[in-house]
Design a protein around this nucleic acid. Structure first.
Length: 273
DNA sequence: AAAACTTACAACCGCTTTCGC
DNA sequence: TGCGAAAGCGGTTGTAAGTTT
């Protein structure tokens, strides 16, 4: 029935990895690939849990990791992605080549939170500090707690869909203002979200899933009926959208933002935003 | 110079999701 | 189909390094 346990914890090392352990792990993965973490420690001659090996490899030893300080562009991208995705560090990391979820999470907690606070922005809500929070909090606080609580999938969908719609509205606005993020321009000016984006009601509440995510459902990004100037603007937006999903094919944004995993969006409609 | 405090980040823990039996 | 282990993920902790007093 099932599988045998992953490791015998009483025979495993803990704490900081030694250089020798690192080398063993690197050599083993070079020879055999990432394969099965469960059997890796034994095969590599390591007294470590497979889970620990995986973490060490992913967060520190992988050759494609980009070490060193985050750039200003990466900062802004993380802030924007966090405003869209909340604390979904792995999803954020997937859009920053060479960075790991753990690294981004640590960086967020040590640098970006402070940076946003100094700009007068609440790092949880991406709203100006002191503004009245929505009663229906966004997913920054619900990424885990909602699944722990008795909230149904419908409730989770409502929250995430609300967030995705807000995101759809916010992203083009950011891009029209150049590299400045919505949070940035919002915070530095001291204006409320509603003042910056008068067409957006951030208290919007959505209850029923879209039957499918079609371009026409997001009127602000409907290219077909746009005059040439608008089309030019939207072409810029489309290019800039790629920043947020550089590895994604040109598919529905909901899909690109992983909503299909939560059944919030089951479509794979090809769309040009 | 050293103690106290702060910061940064690697690693661990516990939970959820996925998947093999 | 259900159970249980593996994998994956996000929150938290431990501690080394840096800074201040």
């Amino acid at each position: 029935m099932g599988r045998s346990p992953c490791c015998e914890k009483q025979h495993t090392n803990k704490g900081a990895w030694t250089r020798e352990e690192d080398e063993r792990l690197i050599n083993h993965i070079k020879l055999h690939g990432e394969g099965c973490w469960r059997s890796l420690p034994k095969a590599a001659g390591l007294l470590r849990c497979g889970k620990s090996c995986r973490l060490r490899w992913i967060n520190y030893l992988r050759p494609d990791l980009k070490r060193g300080n985050f750039t200003e562009e990466e900062d802004e991208l993380i802030i924007n992605l966090h405003s869209l995705l909340g604390n979904k560090w792995s999803s954020i990391a997937a859009r920053l080549p060479g960075r790991t979820d753990n690294e981004i999470k640590n960086y967020w907690n040590t640098h970006i939170k402070r940076k946003l606070c100094s700009r007068g922005i609440d790092p949880h809500t991406h709203r100006p500090l002191g503004s009245v929070p929505s009663t229906n909090k966004t997913s920054n606080n619900n990424s885990r707690s909602s699944s722990n609580s008795n909230n149904s999938n419908v409730n989770r969908f409502q929250l995430e869909t609300k967030e995705s719609v807000t995101a759809l509205m916010q992203v083009p606005a950011n891009i029209d203002n150049g590299a400045e993020s919505a949070a940035d321009s919002n915070g530095s000016s001291g204006l409320s979200s509603e003042e910056v984006f008068p067409q957006i009601n951030l208290e919007l509440s959505i209850g029923i899933p879209f039957p499918s995510c079609q371009r026409s459902q997001f009127s602000s990004v409907n290219l077909n009926q746009s005059p040439p100037q608008q089309q030019q603007q939207q072409q810029q937006k489309r290019v800039s959208y790629q920043l947020f999903r550089p590895t994604m094919p040109d598919v529905c944004l909901c899909y690109g933002l992983d909503f299909q995993k939560n059944h919030a969006c089951s479509c794979r409609v090809i769309t040009t935003l």
